[in-house]
Amino acid sequence: MSNIRIRANARDGVTTVRAIMNHEMETGQRKDKDTGEPIPAHFIQEVTAKWNDEVVMTGLWSSGVSKNPYLSFMFNGGEKGDTVEITWVDNKGESETGTAEIS
């Protein structure tokens, strides 16, 4: 099961992708309200977007990207049925991959 929701639409030779990832994007600057302990940083550092086997975009992120990150991007090309794949890796080495067919 992937926690990345992806929509990809091709129109006039350009594909537009919209994605939402489930992630805390914890900055490391907040404190636990009950214990007063700092909450450790936990955030996505790298996002890779592929159209079939081609990398179209690589995002390098800080914890300044909002919780449950939204990302939209576009690329030239793409046809109905092609695959768009998004993979993220966070600062703890955890990773998720999601795919969608272009419609």
């Binding site: 179209v56 995002g59 390098l60 992120w61 800080s62 990207v65 690329f75």
Partner: peptide
């Protein structure tokens, strides 16, 4: 610095 995106050859 929030984010930086490297664009591939076909990226808009």
């Amino acid at each position: 610095l929030i984010a930086s995106f490297d664009l591939g050859a076909d990226a808009v």
